[in-house]
Design a protein around this nucleic acid. Sequence first.
DNA 1: GCCAACCACGTTAACGTTAACGTATTCGGA
DNA 2: TCCGAATACGTTAACGTTAACGTGGTTGGC
Lengths: 343, 343
Amino acid sequence: MESEREIQRAPSRRSSIRHVADAAGVSMMTVSRALRGIDGVSEATRTRIAAIARDMGYIPNGNARALAETNSKLIGLSLPNLFNDVFADILEGMRRTLHSAGYSTVIDTTDYDPARELDWFERMTIWRPAALVLTGCAHAEDLRRHLTRTPLPVVEIWDVTDTPIDLCVGCDHQAAGLALARHVAALGYRRPAFVGPPEGLDPRAEARVAGIGQAFADVGAQTLHREPAKGDHAYGVGARGFEALPKGAFDVVFFHNDNTAFGGLMAAQAAGLDVPDDIGIVGFNRLDLTRVLPRPLTTIETPRRQIGEIAARHLLARLNGLSPPPVTTLPCTLIPGETVRAI
Amino acid sequence: MESEREIQRAPSRRSSIRHVADAAGVSMMTVSRALRGIDGVSEATRTRIAAIARDMGYIPNGNARALAETNSKLIGLSLPNLFNDVFADILEGMRRTLHSAGYSTVIDTTDYDPARELDWFERMTIWRPAALVLTGCAHAEDLRRHLTRTPLPVVEIWDVTDTPIDLCVGCDHQAAGLALARHVAALGYRRPAFVGPPEGLDPRAEARVAGIGQAFADVGAQTLHREPAKGDHAYGVGARGFEALPKGAFDVVFFHNDNTAFGGLMAAQAAGLDVPDDIGIVGFNRLDLTRVLPRPLTTIETPRRQIGEIAARHLLARLNGLSPPPVTTLPCTLIPGETVRAI
DNA sequence: GCCAACCACGTTAACGTTAACGTATTCGGA
DNA sequence: TCCGAATACGTTAACGTTAACGTGGTTGGC
């Protein structure tokens, strides 16, 4: 006796192209052509078939289509995580554009782990995607070899590099760090610190630190101190990192991003320090959070949405047999803010 | 003459199960069984085939497999957006669990638009996914009809309902609003307002408002005022919404979530109001942001990660022919905070 | 009035995999 | 010594679609 709790759901009403063809009294090929909007079908037949297909609830089988066409309309996307507005912005920019061209995105996250990125590649390739998109330009050697060999279009986003695998759309984080820090150094700050992820975790941190360090080296300031911090969330990383800094040793603290900077801001406030009178605080990215702060955060705006859109456009061009520029570097915009001041 | 800029990438080294079979001197079926770990192959043959497949760089074709098995290892996931830690948390909870069972997730966003959710369904079904997961329990009538008829497992997450389509895992937002507001009302507050999305956009807002309103009605307080607010980002919504409230008309303001509440907090501060001395501020969800505020935000913690994990586990059970409970309601935890006080 | 071109469709053979069923070989037991 | 069962494979026929290549009928030009 069957369990009473066994849930019986409606049986599949499978309808293939053949069923539609039989109902319409034409061949399968005519249905295929009609539904895909391909030449060789009279307008009358096309509308008749479309109506029949709709009535029958026909849904094309993407797997069969991908098999016959030898690749699918899926695009694999690898991001470090989704707990960051940066990646949500980039993703949204890409998704819209790709979507309107009939592609679907399959996302996976790596948590900045190169091994997981390689794993992603292997699992994604199974679906014979139309293209692969990945974050940053630093990859495990194995993965890089695979990506170089694959016939698929590959897009690296967010970072830029001189040696792209295929296409690359991003911004120059070192140049952004440099521009941001030059602005701060010009105000008179000379004892800088950086709070962010430990070395080797996020390649963007390395680039930003390099840029910031250079700006201060150029004016003969104290060497940039790097304070590594870890934690469950960016806010805590910023707060803990700030608290770990030796008191009074620095006149300005750069943070890896705006969330971290906000954590630092709260820690400074808790320590009874005035920003910017006692210490300067500088973020990165210009996230929405910074737009409601009573004292606007000094930061630099990264064109995330635009990176996503342009990456998607270049990718579509590539899929259509064109040759978009291999590397596209988008400019960042300095937001002076009020968490640093002339000293 | 071909364009110099034409990028030539490595040609496809297509290797199918047949190539592996030929190289190993066995039939395709043996390779298929060996690689999938299915009985009927000797251990010696299995390791030999595995080695050959690896050397040849063989990658199984998921589309062909899905076609032969009549459904794929993809799971379609519909979320309102990704600019919200809530959905990132839920997604991360599900992803890990599904992933380790060999499933990949295909995400799409709807921006709270029922029409886009229907569109998602139609585009997703093309891939013959193993299951569908969608946010909330309110859907367009068309979509609901489709979902009821489909033989696929369907999971509704985040909200709960008495009439699930199939499975449902979430928390009771009305009960959470009630618990949260009872705590606030018990402190003596009697003139409440709510700032959040306009009516009809986010069903969770309706539920929370209902709960909050009831708590105050129960103590004979002033009727809950609802202030609709829109904007590019949650922080701005909160700030603009707070500013739009008639001055002095309310003693406590509930916000739709913590991001919005933070915007309101900043607006209150900008208006020279002390929180909680001049006005109470209450959030929802307990996002990470609230963990670094100098004065902890009064809010209620929603078990997002857990919802994702349990939803994934129930879904896997369902896919394995078991019958997990149709509806699972997870409890929320009141965080008293310090942005309200006894008055 | 003939032929070329074109239009609107049809046929055939993949695409790569797996479910279902078939078949040698070995082995233990009566 | 023979048989049934288990083991380790192999064969066949889908799964649903599309690319490539037909084919019959109409049209237009000279």
